[in-house]
Amino acid sequence: MSKQLIVHAEQVTKSFGDLEILKGIDLQVFRGEVLCIIGPSGSGKSTFLRCINHLEKIDGGRLSVNGSLVGYRQNGDRLYELKDKDVCRERANIGMVFQHFNLFGHKTALENVIEGPVQVKGISKKKATEQGMALLERVGLGSRAHAYPYAMSGGQQQRVAIARALAMEPQLMLFDEPTSSLDPELVGEVLDVMKDLASSGMTMVVVTHEMGFAREVADGIVFIDNGCVVERGQPHDVLGNPQEERTRAFLSAVL
């Protein structure tokens, strides 16, 4: 059985004004695969991740998730932007976890988790609450279901954010530096949840600086620098025996 292509990026370009952030990214992620994107800050790795669920619009190239173009409709050699409603439907299948958690501040942990299922998918509140509690249990926070974000540690907030994304039953999870704003002793609890998720077969794209996590969990690693994919390979190859000079320079600085 051939592997199912989930993320397919072809020559993706993106500029902010005159500054070209992505200079033609080619990338493939297959079902069940965990791909870690590493690279120096400003290299475009977060921007690329945000393009995958259309939080940023791409300027050129083609990007599809599970066979459908994100935010666009192709007709001949033109890409037409989709309406907000249609973009929303596609985004609902892609979970995203942010560096700064971005939990809804006026809602409890449980309310954060059920907001999407109830408001976007139209599931009954009772059913969503049952599923939401199960998800909170899964990330180890069943007892904090009724706590507001301000009363939780960064690690707990990030685990709720993961549960919130999972509640939409996504086919793909995007993580944008999920542990970068956590105190060092809280990083582990979030990585544990992510490892658990990876072993359950979730397709994941993770922008991270956690080389240990990448080595242990990732199926593939991509090194992006200056808007280009510099190197891609198995974790032990890229991290242990990098082929490119720029990869070596980056790794020697962070490891």
Partner: peptide
């Protein structure tokens, strides 16, 4: 952004 990401 978080609300957009869950498809709102």
């Amino acid at each position: 952004e978080a609300a957009s990401a869950i498809g709102m």
